[in-house]
Simulated assay, not measured.
Amino acid sequence: MGHVHHRHAFESLNPLVPEGLTVLSRRNLLKSSLAGMAGISLPGLLRQKALANRTGGSSPSGKSIILLWMTGGPSHIDTLDPKPDRPIENRGPFGTISTKLPGVRVCEYLPKLAGMLDRFTVIRSVDARGSNHEPNTVFQTANRTAEPRENREASLYPAIASVVAKHHGANQPGMPPYVAFMKSRSHLAFGGYLGKAYDPFIADTAAKLPLVDVVGKPTGRTSQGDIFRLAKGLSYERMQDRRSLASQFDSLRRDLDTNGSMALMDRYEQEAVDMLVGGRMQAAFDLSKEPQSVRDRYGSHLWCQQALIARRLVEAGSTFVTLDLSYHPASGTWDTHGDNIPRMAASGTGYARCYPPSII
Rank of each mutant, 00 (worst) to 15 (best):
R267E: 15
A206W: 10
S293E: 15
F249G: 07
D255H: 08
Y298K: 14
V273Q: 06
D250R: 01
S251F: 01
K232I: 02
L308F: 02
M275A: 14
R238E: 09
L313K: 05
L252I: 08
R242V: 14
P210H: 03
S300V: 01
G338E: 08
D324K: 12
L245Y: 02
E269N: 12
S300A: 14
D226G: 04
H328V: 09
S247G: 11
Q305V: 03
D241P: 06
L313Y: 00
A203D: 00
V214H: 14
D339C: 11
R238D: 15
S318E: 12
S251Q: 06
D213A: 11
H301F: 12
I341H: 13
M262I: 11
R295A: 05
F201K: 09
V277I: 15
L313D: 05
K232V: 06
G317K: 07
R243G: 00
T319N: 15
Y327N: 08
H328M: 03
A203H: 08
G299A: 07
A330W: 07
K232R: 08
N340K: 00
H337N: 11
S326M: 01
V212M: 00
S326P: 07
T258G: 10
G216P: 06
T258C: 10
L230A: 02
E290K: 14
F320S: 10
P329L: 03
A310C: 05
M281D: 06
T219H: 04
L302Q: 10
G338I: 08
S247H: 11
W303Q: 11
A231Q: 04
Q240S: 01
A272N: 04
D255R: 02
S251G: 13
L211H: 11
Y298W: 14
F201Q: 14
A284M: 00
Y327I: 09
D296L: 00
C304K: 10
K208N: 10
R267Q: 03
R229S: 15
Y298Q: 02
R253C: 07
S331P: 03
M262L: 15
L209I: 02
Q240G: 04
V212R: 02
Q306A: 05
F285P: 03
T205S: 15
G233L: 12
L234S: 08
L264T: 11
P210W: 05
R311E: 15
A283V: 00
R280E: 02
D274R: 14
E271T: 02
T258S: 07
R221V: 05
R297I: 05
G216E: 07
T258W: 00
L256E: 13
L264P: 13
T319H: 03
R221N: 13
V212S: 05
Q306H: 12
S326Q: 01
Q248C: 11
M262W: 05
W303D: 11
D324L: 14
T333M: 09
P291S: 08
T336M: 11
P342N: 01
I227G: 01
F249K: 02
